[in-house]
Simulated assay, not measured.
Amino acid sequence: MSLFASPRFLRHVLFADAASCVATGLAQVLFANFLATWLGLPAWLLTATGWFLLAYAAVVAFTASRPVVAHGWVRLFVAGNLAWAVLCVAVLAGGVLSPGKLGMAWILAQAVVVVVLAELQWMSLRRAPAVGWA
């Protein structure tokens, strides 16, 4: 059996997704003002996206903890991760915000991490037996 076809691999990737969101979300919520100064990003944006990441992490962790991981949810997480990466690039390319070098690195790091997670989720999903939304 392929590593990616293992149901445990998908669960591990989902829990890694949730953990990365918890770490980033907590940092952005608890240290928004400090990070705003260091990153050159608005504190309100860091706080809002931090709360979103914490909520997203809860849904991903809940899905990963179910006896059967619903593939419909995983496809939604893949799409969400890819959308997050696109938004990260759009923030940098849009010119509306002017993050410093650390801020650009923070945003790019998030984009890279979620693209890798989306790819791992997608690869394991394609090789796993079909399961619906439930």
Score class of each variant (00 low, 15 high):
1 M>S: 15
4 F>R: 15
4 F>H: 15
5 A>I: 14
7 P>R: 12
7 P>L: 09
7 P>H: 11
8 R>S: 14
10 L>T: 13
13 V>A: 14
13 V>E: 11
14 L>V: 03
14 L>W: 10
14 L>Q: 15
15 F>L: 13
15 F>I: 03
16 A>H: 10
16 A>W: 08
17 D>M: 02
18 A>F: 02
18 A>D: 07
19 A>L: 12
19 A>R: 04
20 S>Q: 06
27 A>L: 10
28 Q>A: 08
29 V>S: 05
29 V>N: 01
30 L>F: 01
37 T>K: 13
37 T>R: 13
37 T>A: 12
37 T>G: 08
38 W>P: 00
39 L>N: 03
40 G>V: 09
41 L>S: 04
41 L>T: 06
42 P>K: 09
46 L>A: 06
47 T>M: 05
47 T>H: 06
50 G>V: 01
51 W>H: 05
51 W>V: 01
51 W>I: 01
51 W>S: 00
53 L>T: 00
53 L>E: 02
56 Y>E: 01
56 Y>L: 05
57 A>C: 03
58 A>V: 07
62 F>H: 09
62 F>Y: 13
64 A>W: 05
65 S>C: 13
66 R>Y: 06
67 P>A: 11
68 V>R: 13
70 A>I: 00
71 H>Q: 13
72 G>F: 03
73 W>K: 00
74 V>R: 08
74 V>A: 10
75 R>L: 07
78 V>M: 07
78 V>T: 07
80 G>C: 02
80 G>E: 02
81 N>K: 10
81 N>R: 07
83 A>M: 11
84 W>S: 12
86 V>R: 07
87 L>S: 11
88 C>W: 05
88 C>A: 15
89 V>C: 10
90 A>D: 01
90 A>Q: 04
91 V>S: 06
91 V>C: 06
92 L>M: 13
95 G>M: 02
97 L>G: 07
97 L>F: 11
97 L>V: 02
98 S>E: 04
98 S>K: 10
99 P>Y: 04
100 G>M: 06
100 G>A: 05
102 L>K: 08
103 G>K: 03
105 A>M: 10
105 A>S: 12
105 A>T: 13
107 I>C: 07
107 I>G: 06
107 I>K: 05
107 I>F: 03
109 A>T: 14
109 A>Q: 11
109 A>I: 08
110 Q>E: 08
110 Q>D: 01
110 Q>H: 13
111 A>H: 08
111 A>T: 11
112 V>I: 15
114 V>M: 12
115 V>T: 15
115 V>G: 10
117 L>W: 09
118 A>Q: 07
119 E>D: 11
120 L>I: 07
121 Q>D: 01
122 W>A: 15
124 S>A: 15
125 L>S: 09
125 L>V: 11
126 R>T: 10
128 A>W: 14
129 P>D: 12
129 P>H: 14
129 P>F: 11
130 A>S: 10
130 A>Q: 12
130 A>Y: 03
132 G>E: 03
133 W>T: 00
134 A>D: 04
